[in-house]
Each structure stands twice: as structure tokens, then as C-alpha cells.
């Protein structure tokens, strides 16, 4: 066997090892129920409940933004993001949060928002223009 083959085998072995450890870093999107049960850091995807109260009051705490989202199962829960309220938050369609449950609240340290695509915007714009 050539040296290069040995190295190739080592690399493949390492790769398989990595894949198994990498599985630990991955998870499915959790629901609030699952998050409450496990108590661990999870990712939750959901939709903003636009009718519920959103609180961002920087004078009180610039790192406290609370709102409600509905998770994949349709359960609504309060979320506290430990950061500022992002621009255009109200427009978001889909929200992905990283964090864990503390009591009744989901404490999020990271958030990704998906905003409506430009093309939809255009349609709305033109229609409203016509009405007006």
C-alpha cells in the first residue's frame, strides 16, 4: 500500500468521525413544548403574532425586546430577545430564534428574520397606487 493511500484512509476515517460529532451540532427546529421539556439551547422557527404586544423600551433596558411568535405547532409563546428591536421587524414573515426556555419565556440570543421578497412588495405598491 502506498503512503498516499494510508493518508487517504486516515482522512476518510477522520471525516467519518467528524460527521458523527457534527450531528450533535445539528437539530430540527424545535417547538416551545420541546424547548420547555429539554431546557437546552434550541432553534425555533415561527411566525410573529402581529396582534400581540411588542415591547422595546430602550430607556428601561436597551437589551430587552419582547414579542410573541407562533411555532410550527401553532402554539403561541412570549419571546425575549436580548438585543435591540431590529428594523422592519413588523414586516417579517418567518423568524428563526436561537435560545432556550426560562420559565414561561423563551430567551433568545440570536434571531434571523426573513422579510417578504421584493417582488411581492411591488405588487402591493402598484395596487395601492391604483386605489389611491
Amino acid at each position: 500500500m502506498k503512503k498516499i493511500h494510508i493518508i487517504a484512509i486516515i482522512m476518510i476515517a477522520v471525516a467519518i468521525g467528524l460527521l458523527t460529532t457534527a450531528a450533535e451540532d445539528m437539530s430540527t427546529y424545535a417547538t416551545f413544548t420541546q424547548a420547555a421539556k429539554s431546557g437546552e439551547k434550541v432553534k425555533i422557527a415561527g411566525q410573529l403574532s402581529k396582534d400581540k404586544e411588542m415591547i422595546y423600551n430602550p430607556e428601561v433596558d436597551p437589551n430587552y425586546f419582547s414579542f410573541f411568535i407562533k411555532d410550527g405547532e401553532g402554539n403561541e409563546n412570549k419571546v425575549v430577545l436580548l438585543a435591540e428591536k431590529p428594523q422592519d421587524f413588523e414586516l417579517s414573515e418567518q423568524i428563526v430564534l436561537t435560545g432556550s426556555m426560562k420559565g414561561d419565556e423563551f430567551i433568545a440570543t440570536d434571531m434571523l428574520m426573513k422579510c417578504p421578497s421584493k417582488y411581492k412588495d411591488e405588487e402591493v405598491y402598484i395596487k395601492s397606487k391604483r386605489e389611491g
Binding site: 457534527a22 445539528m26 437539530s27 430540527t28 427546529y29 439551547k41 434550541v42 432553534k43 436561537t98
Partner: peptide
């Protein structure tokens, strides 16, 4: 099948 995601990409 429920899609999987990397919980914390940067440390990963």
C-alpha cells in the same frame, strides 16, 4: 422528514 439545521454555525 423534518429539516435539520446547525444550531450554532460559528462554533461549529
Amino acid at each position: 422528514f423534518e429539516g435539520r439545521v446547525i444550531t450554532e454555525p460559528i462554533p461549529h
